[in-house]
Design a protein around this nucleic acid. Sequence first.
DNA 1: ACCCTAATCGAACTACAAGTACGATATATA
DNA 2: TATATATCGTACTTGTAGTTCGATTAGGGT
Lengths: 209, 209
Amino acid sequence: MGERKKQALERFNRDNIITAAKELFETHGVDHTTMDDIARQADYSKSTIYVYFKSKEEIYNSIVHDYMDMLTGELAIAITQEGSFSESYRRVCDCLVRFDERHPAYYAGLLGEAQMTGSRKKQDEAARGTIAPELEQLLVKLIDKGKKEKTLSTKVKSNQLAFYMWSGISGIIRLADRKKAEIVTQYQVTKDVYLSNAFSMFYESLIRG
Amino acid sequence: MGERKKQALERFNRDNIITAAKELFETHGVDHTTMDDIARQADYSKSTIYVYFKSKEEIYNSIVHDYMDMLTGELAIAITQEGSFSESYRRVCDCLVRFDERHPAYYAGLLGEAQMTGSRKKQDEAARGTIAPELEQLLVKLIDKGKKEKTLSTKVKSNQLAFYMWSGISGIIRLADRKKAEIVTQYQVTKDVYLSNAFSMFYESLIRG
DNA sequence: ACCCTAATCGAACTACAAGTACGATATATA
DNA sequence: TATATATCGTACTTGTAGTTCGATTAGGGT
């Protein structure tokens, strides 16, 4: 078989497997989906699955990677679209909230915090706990936009400020998601209103860095 | 055996087991510590372990609970000690940072985000993803202190603001911990300096809520 | 039509750790 | 000494990731 065809086949099979895994991960949860489940759903034998992916974790990471691409695409638009820093900032927050709502199973993966339960293989050192570089670049771009229009001071280095922004926003979203029930019952606001307030407050910290 | 003695014995055994587990969890990590390891370390048979704890997770949660008590003690001091809101706020941040540094294996548990890998039992619904109520009360107390001295506006409800504060601080600490290497190499500051800056910025968002 | 190679299958197998079962034994109390 | 109960030890069950390997299928080249 020609090298061309071989690669096309590999891609085709990987895609099928990922599609199947996505469905199962989202409906039953990552932990309750077994490799046999994935094989059955994708209509492959388990051994074939292991030809294309060396572990369950690699499947999960591939999906996260796909979603990461989608997300960075959306963020790029949110950031480069016309409007002030403040408007871009809100669009970015919205993007992340919507991502968390649509793909809760992968939000942890996006932050590099996913851990496979019951995995026999050591976790990939490479992918551990890093912000994806493209993501970081985008956030820096956003910060620079703010600096250019003098909304942000230039005292703090952009990448450091971007990192601060990311940690704050992701912390806010994570906890809001975890405690959404209490937010509604105890604080008497919807989750969206709470988040909107929180992002507004957090914005203050950025423009006074 | 009298009820008194029985309870003392139960406590004694639980303490021994927890002490053994703590050592192993901290030296080898929670995931790489097996129930057999714990039994060996504590000098009990595995079956006895299961008399006193119904699962590995319960052992872990007990430890978290202990540390939570310690931490709330320290926070209570940090908050009620003399000084302004701003000073208390810094002390609270310091407390949390030091906790994360001393007990990284339990920081996730503290936030209610720990997940046992390979556990056969369903996770306790009760303990899922909540801030411990005592912790929440303390944070509210801190916020109220700020309101009383007019450093904080009273527009936002105290418990909501406390929650926001908690999510921000814990997000900042978590990511700083995860990326400490990059902080030093890329941002050219020590982790402590970075955190100090971050907490200062975040402070701005609180006083302008 | 035939062969060869690579892809796929299937089913049994290993490894491992959590949690269980249960009879044997030690220890204290009455 | 008799009884109750705490502890032990060992073997077992269960669930799942990942492996092995011989059998089978499919397509392309001759």
